[in-house]
């Protein structure tokens, strides 16, 4: 059974509805990639699962978020607070600014287990140092007393991951955890997370726009476009035979060795803003395979051997 089942999730912010009918599942021991360009609703999905939409004045307008058998939509904030950090942890985008500059690193990791596991101070410290060592942070004892400004970006991101792990959550949502890091450090951090998922039987939702990261880490992929799910499938299937033209063009954007010199492919146009989502299939103005029907009706989600796709090209004709 899936640990997290999101079905038909819609989010509204005021009169806008930047997200509608988003469905996916996250399983223990698996990494689910949430992929899409900027503005496709990836971070919004994460915020909806974390119950943080109030922060930006949004709310869940439809659908359900089922976590370990518990409905999260409509959950009171005080109950949500017991889930955050303890059962579901969020790793945010920028490690440079995710740590309080005037609190020692150790104390920041400690506070999570102090809060959720009610450990004693020495026990929390021992646990933090142990976690730091698991994340291959050298000289953990010394760094436990260091301040954030004394660390590099990659080290800071490991500390942020350690904070997320401190209370032993079941689900981790990592919102572009490597975007702010050097490419070499990126690969290390991704590898650390892959190992963690295997070792601790975690469910990880990895939000990214980097198809390389997806290929390296994810088991399954959800492709979001303009607030809707375009395609869901296993990573293998997505790369081998993308069903949705959008997925195909995303993969087409990855430079390959045997590509002609000097031509980097892109997808023409930009993601439409929430104010002017096109009618019908939201990708149709940028789609090479667009048909007349695409501009009129929203494509239904149709099942594929290992996933599903929302595209008129794959519609089952009855």
């Amino acid at each position: 059974m899936a640990l997290l089942t999101v079905s038909g999730l819609g989010v509204t912010i005021g009169t806008l509805s930047p997200l509608d009918d988003v469905s996916f599942e996250a399983h223990k021991g698996e990494i689910l990639g949430l992929v899409g360009e900027s503005g496709s609703g990836k971070s919004l999905t994460a915020m909806a699962v974390m119950g943080l939409l109030g922060r930006i004045g949004g709310r869940v307008s439809s659908g359900s978020i089922l976590f370990d058998g518990q409905e999260l939509v409509g959950l009171r904030d005080s109950s949500y607070r017991r889930l955050r950090g303890k059962r579901i942890a969020l790793i945010s985008q920028n490690p440079m600014t995710s740590l309080d500059p005037i609190v020692r690193i150790g104390a920041q990791i400690d506070q999570v287990s102090l809060l959720h596991l009610r450990l004693s101070k020495p026990a929390a410290k021992a646990r933090s140092i142990d976690l730091m060592q698991q994340l291959r942070i050298p000289d953990a004892e010394t760094l436990h007393r260091a301040y954030p400004h004394q660390l590099s970006g990659g080290m800071k991101q490991r500390i942020v991951i350690a904070m997320a792990l401190a209370a032993d959550p079941d689900l981790i949502i990592a919102d572009e955890p490597t975007t702010a890091l050097d490419v070499t450090i990126q690969a290390q951090i991704i590898q650390i997370m892959v190992d963690l998922v295997r070792a601790r039987d975690l469910a990880l939702i990895l939000i990214t726009h980097d198809m390389g990261v997806v290929a390296q880490a994810c088991n399954r992929v959800v492709v979001l476009y303009a607030g809707r799910v375009a395609e869901t499938n296993t990573t293998q299937a997505i790369f081998a035979s993308p069903c949705h033209p959008y997925t195909a063009s995303l993969i087409g954007c990855i430079p390959s060795r045997d590509q002609a010199e000097g031509t980097l492919l892109g997808i023409p146009g930009t993601v439409p803003g929430v104010l002017n989502y096109p009618k019908g299939c939201r990708f149709h103005p940028r789609c090479g395979d667009a048909m007349q029907v695409c501009a009129r009706t929203v494509p239904p989600t149709t099942a594929q051997p290992t996933g599903s796709v929302a595209c008129h090209l794959h519609e089952v004709v009855t």
Binding site: L52, R84, G85, L90, S92, N94, D100, I102, L115, M163
Partner: peptide
């Protein structure tokens, strides 16, 4: 609005903790 304050809330910290351990010291 700082990310580290949001990150603390994301990890389940209560208002009291956020105000007295992170906001006021800063």
């Amino acid at each position: 609005q700082e990310t580290y304050i949001e990150a603390t809330v994301n990890l389940g910290a209560g208002h009291f903790h956020v105000i007295f351990r992170h906001l006021l010291p800063n």
